[in-house]
Write a protein that binds this DNA or RNA. Structure first.
Lengths: 191, 191
DNA sequence: CAGATTTTGGACCGATCAATCCACTACGAG
DNA sequence: CTCGTAGTGGATTGATCGGTCCAAAATCTG
């Protein structure tokens, strides 16, 4: 060991994540990444091997962070299932104020999906984790007589995340909170 | 007038549209556009003033084409409203085989939304047209006692297109027809 | 303090970007 | 048949791209 780093690696990934989230992969230049992280080119390439590698780390960070938060809501048995679903969808009505518009994962699927199967795999695994958790929660609610037991639980779980995807695309296009709220209400009628 | 063009302008826009649709704006090079259209650089820059201009024309063409098709379905009074909505959503379950994955309009909102307000405006006007048409159809169905009159008609219309957006993002990520079908079924329960 | 080791800033690299230019071609008008 | 005009192919432009390199700086170990 010799000269220590003057920056925090996680902070750098976080800053990069927000730039990629806002601007997309192609439209983000390495110069943008330097500016956003406050690092020089050498520090970035010394720590992360390439723009693509840094993007992967940023995306993983995003996926892990948001998946963990969603799983916590999904598994919170102190709330009725319907309320848990509402909270999942509600993140699109009232997003975290300082976060960029839309969803980084969805932006990435849209931009890179057709030509980056590894990224699709990563996001798909993440998606499956969430679907499985929600499916389990729905089945429990069905067994408890909380919601209609006739419906396909997994189909309903996929439906929830599909609606969330639609909401986040709409948010990226500047949809109003009122309009997003109306969609959430309509979506919840399927339960 | 002198030497005539050896290519069809609309065909060129169409070819460009498919490349932008597949690859996105940033990741499409002018060389890609030359290859896809079969034109030389000069012909492209002589006919369209810039890459951005050609993109705008391609996007407008897409929006007009698909909006027209959707409006036709929405206004087809020979079908029950529920069936019309199903057909709108069904385009995500069984897309036109040779079309690129996903929806060009949604891809564009996601990629360029935050930094191209003019494009957002264009797509938003298009969106409003469709929402207004579906709202009218829903209100008629409510007046006819075909569906529950309690619900906010416009909210329901926005909901339908939001779900469609989610389905198209899922398609971009390679969702299976089975999974898409289950989502359509769940979505229709809100009616 | 000295030497080894890592980080850092900035100059630099070839490749590629969107866009322009120009010589040449092809055709309509007279 | 010739002239004028518009279309075309390909070379070329300056800017920017992602990525590398190197000398100077900083701090740990002994």
């Amino acid at each position: 060991m010799a000269r220590p780093r003057t920056f925090d690696e996680d902070r750098a990934v976080d800053a990069a994540m927000r730039v990629f989230w806002t601007t997309g992969y192609e439209a983000t230049s390495t110069q943008d990444l330097c500016t956003a992280t406050g690092l020089g080119r050498s520090s970035i390439y010394n720590t992360f091997t390439s723009k693509r590698d840094l993007f992967d780390r940023a995306l993983r960070r995003y996926a892990e962070h948001f998946t963990a938060a969603q799983l916590e809501v999904i598994r919170d048995e102190s709330l009725p299932l319907r309320e848990r679903v509402r909270r999942i969808l509600w993140t699109a009505v009232e997003p975290v104020p300082d976060d960029p518009a839309g969803c980084f994962a969805i932006n990435t699927i849209v931009e890179l999906g057709p030509r980056e199967p590894e990224i699709v795999d990563l996001l798909d695994r993440d998606h499956q984790t969430k679907v499985a958790a929600l499916t389990t929660a729905i089945q429990a609610a069905q067994a408890a007589g909380e919601i209609d037991a006739e419906q396909n639980a997994e189909g309903l779980a996929v439906y929830v995340f599909t609606v969330l995807g639609g909401l986040r695309v709409a948010a990226r296009g500047g949809a109003s909170a009122d309009s997003q709220r109306a969609v959430v209400e309509a979506a919840l009628r399927s339960f």
